[in-house]
Every structure is written in structure tokens, then in C-alpha cells.
Design a protein around this nucleic acid. Structure first.
Lengths: 148, 148
DNA sequence: GGTGAAAAGGTGCTGAT
DNA sequence: ATCAGCACCTTTTCACC
């Protein structure tokens, strides 16, 4: 389900991945398009579901979550509803990927302290065996995919 | 290094995490603040390093990367320079976390095909032994942390 | 932090290429 | 599909309370 994207589309995507809050006029200047054409392009990209949102990124430490961890979860059975519910309740779980392999889920979790992390892991352990790795640092600053 | 954030700050963060492209006036309306006060708050949050950026999110499949995988890397030794270089070159590597535990690095990788993924894993395997899990689906839509 | 003004800039039309 | 020009409106910014 891929869409054909030309150079201009990619230029727009590239700019908005880096600075999502620039105006459409400024965006047009950067990709050499008039404001109206830029508006149309962005509307198209949004309508096609290529661009699916614009998000502010925050420093987790600054907002009170100095501990970041990856928890892998071995989840026996196929009743996923209870886990879904925990994901809804626990905003500390930032990301949840269902994967192939022994560990069915890989979660990214933000915690206020090691004690808090322990609590979260305990809650997850109710679903299956967990493997937790604390993150030293985010080696890469945010970026999206480039042109294939 | 945490900053004191009040309810209004959190309301602003919450809104911008969901819709980063709204105007400062609209933001002010949503958090019951005047436009000027809103502008000042956002400026502060940016200056303090609480908000560190605004990014457009794209549908990886739509832009030509239908394969998403998590690669864990066991990296012997401490010469991290060569890996850094690969991270710079390969925009397919979306995220790289250095962690405690046996697997020193956990990477999130986007690929155009399984063949492409194989190439990427081979490149990473030059640094150490790898464990690759292909992602079935992203169980959670994007969200940031909530108030602690 | 709020309010009011002025200025700037962005947006959204139109018709034409 | 894009552009240019224009009218309209919003947003921003500054003064001051």
C-alpha cells in the first residue's frame, strides 16, 4: 500500500519531520513551491495517510521520567485483551511492538524512578516472563525515514 | 534535571504532543490562556529544553518501508565510533538505544523488503552478534508521557 | 498573566497557464 | 497541477495595566 511520492513530496516530508510547526508559506519557500501549491500537497499527504500526525517531542528527564527501559515480554496464549487494557491505563508505556520470535512484545517504558520501573515490570510480569534492559542513552536524535 | 511544571504546562505539553501544528492562539483557547501568555509558556518550555522538537509522523508502509524490525546487538569492546558512522549513513535505522544487559544496543530499523532487511542486519552483524525480530504491528499509536 | 492596539504574515480564493 | 495576485482573516508582537 505504498504511494508514489515525487521529490517535492519527499522534500516536504523531510522538512516536516524536522520542524513540524513551520507555516505552509515557510514550507513552500523551503521546497520552492507557492503557498497554495504547498497547502495542496500537504493536504494530499495527510488525506492519503502518508503524514499521520504532528507531535511535540519532550525531554523525558525534564518532565520527570529519568528512567527509560525496554521490556520484552514472552506472552503465552492469545488473549491479548488484558494487555491492551494495561496499555490504555499506563501512559508510562510509550510504545508497544508485537514481534516475531520468542518475545512476543517489545515495550518502551518511561519511569520516574527505579522503584517505579519495578512496579511497571511487575505489572507486566503478570502476563508472562519479562526481560528488562535499562537505557543508558538515546544514541540517535529523532529522525524519520529517508527516501528509499 | 527535572523542571517544575504546573497544570497549564502539562496541558500545553499534552496538546502539542497530539497536534503540534495548531496555532498559539488555538492552543491558548484549549488551555484557557491568553495568546500572549501561551506564547510565553511555550517559549519557556522550549528554552528550558522541555520541548525539544516538533515532528511529523509518517506511515512507514505508505512511504515505502513496509518492514519494521527490532535488532538487538551484542557489541563486544568499547570502540563505538564505527557503529556511530553506520548510524549516520543508514537512515533506515530509526532509533538506537544503548542499554544494560547482554545486548548492548537495541535498534529499530525500517526496510523496504525482507531482502533489504537482510542487508541491514548483515551490516550490523559486522559489529557483533544480532537478534532480529520483525514487527507484526505497532500496537500503540503515538503518545508521549503523561503527568507523573 | 491579561488586554488592547497595530503590524505582519498566513490562508484561501480567483483566473490563467 | 501550479502559479500569481489579491482580499480577508488570523496570528503575532508590543505597549501598558
Amino acid at each position: 500500500m505504498a504511494v508514489n511520492l515525487d521529490d517535492v513530496d519527499w522534500a516536504i516530508i523531510h522538512q516536516l519531520q524536522q520542524e513540524a510547526r513551520i507555516s505552509l508559506s515557510e514550507l513552500g519557500r523551503r521546497v520552492n513551491l507557492s503557498p497554495s501549491a504547498t497547502t495542496e500537497r500537504v493536504r494530499q499527504l495527510e488525506a492519503q495517510g502518508v503524514i499521520i500526525g504532528y507531535h511535540a517531542a519532550v525531554d523525558l528527564t525534564q518532565v520527570g521520567y529519568p528512567v527509560l527501559a525496554i521490556v520484552r515480554l514472552k506472552y503465552p496464549g492469545n488473549r491479548h485483551q488484558p494487555l491492551r487494557q494495561l496499555l490504555d491505563e499506563r501512559r508510562e508505556i510509550l510504545e508497544c511492538l508485537r514481534t516475531t520470535g520468542d518475545d512476543c512484545y517489545t515495550l518502551k517504558v518511561a519511569a520516574t524512578s527505579m522503584g517505579h520501573l519495578e512496579t511497571l515490570v511487575d505489572e507486566l510480569a503478570a502476563f508472562g516472563s519479562t526481560t528488562t534492559s535499562v537505557v543508558y542513552n538515546q544514541t540517535l536524535s529523532y529522525r524519520g525515514p529517508g527516501r528509499p
